[in-house]
């Protein structure tokens, strides 16, 4: 085969896969801009002939509060989880200095725990979690949802940051240790600033995960006032005979923030995913 043909086939295969992969987001973007009239006459894969924001206007009223609620939850959750996780990760890093039996057992146990918290089907803690939040008097409060999310996302932060911190050169920390600097100070002054790209990856990963978390707000919110966007869109499931432009407009409003983050800072999210899998050299 001639190289030109080979290269074109190569790109053709990738283009076909990309088109297939992009169909859902294409449907989401075009259908939110259809007018009610056009919805009843066109299928979902045909773009609108006229551009209408009617559907966005009609769903925004009921989604504005959930969007705000999600922001109020996600911003503190992600910053706290990524920062406290980073602290924990530096502790693992210092543990790996001493090769004593005790510290290696301790690090195995702690690391298993944070991995459990990261990967467990968190739905399985439904009943004790609900009870804990109710007993703390935090049902239907921002604090309750944030607390519940931190149970899972601080360990996630620690796991991801462990991967990023482990690639820092030892000599930097060694030098500070010899000067008698405490570990807390070393973390704040040296390790944290140096692992800033890793911190951003961890932060973005947790923002997207917590924004999209469906189950925790589903069980810990019982009043419509406190609904988060991930759960609020469920009202637009519809069924046959309902107008789908509303569904897609709601879907778009719920996805616009994570999608925008993914489009502009996607490389950080991807590094976060790689760290989740156990790192790759120099992530």
């Amino acid at each position: 085969m001639r190289p030109v043909i080979k290269a074109s086939l190569h790109y053709l295969a990738l283009a076909v896969v990309s088109v297939l992969w992009l169909i859902p987001v294409y449907a989401m973007v075009i259908n939110g801009f259809k007018s009610d009239l056009e919805v009843s006459s066109t299928p979902v894969l045909v773009p609108p002939t006229q551009f209408s924001i009617g559907a966005y206007v009609s769903v925004f009223g009921s989604l504005a509060k959930p969007l705000l609620n999600s922001l109020i939850i996600v911003i503190p959750t992600s910053f706290i989880a990524a920062f406290l996780g980073a602290m924990g990760a530096y502790f693992f890093y210092t543990l790996s200095y001493s090769y004593s039996r005790f510290s290696s057992t301790l690090s195995d146990v702690l690391f298993s725990l944070i991995a459990l918290a990261t990967f467990i089907p968190y739905q399985a803690t439904l009943i004790p979690l609900t009870r804990l939040i109710v007993d703390m008097g935090l049902l239907d409060t921002y604090a309750g949802i944030i607390f519940a999310m931190l149970i899972f996302y601080i360990p996630t932060g620690a796991l991801l940051m462990s991967m990023f911190i482990s690639v820092l050169p030892r000599s930097l920390v060694e030098a500070a240790k010899i000067d008698g600097t405490g570990d807390l100070k070393i973390f704040l002054k040296i390790v944290f600033p140096l692992s800033m790209p890793g911190f951003i990856s961890t932060l973005i990963f947790i923002i997207i995960q917590s924004w999209n978390n469906f189950f925790i707000p589903l069980v810990l919110v019982t009043t419509p006032e406190m609904k988060l966007i991930s759960v609020a869109v469920e009202a637009y499931t519809g069924g046959y005979g309902t107008l789908y432009n509303d569904t897609f407009a709601a879907a778009m409003l719920a996805s616009i923030i994570p999608l925008a983050i993914f489009i502009f800072l996607g490389r950080y999210f991807i590094r976060g995913l790689i760290a989740l899998g156990g790192g790759g050299k120099g992530v």
Partner: peptide, 10 residues
């Protein structure tokens, strides 16, 4: 990778 940036509910 982008499907992972959108919630599974959406």
């Amino acid at each position: 990778i982008y499907p992972l940036a959108i919630s599974m509910a959406v």
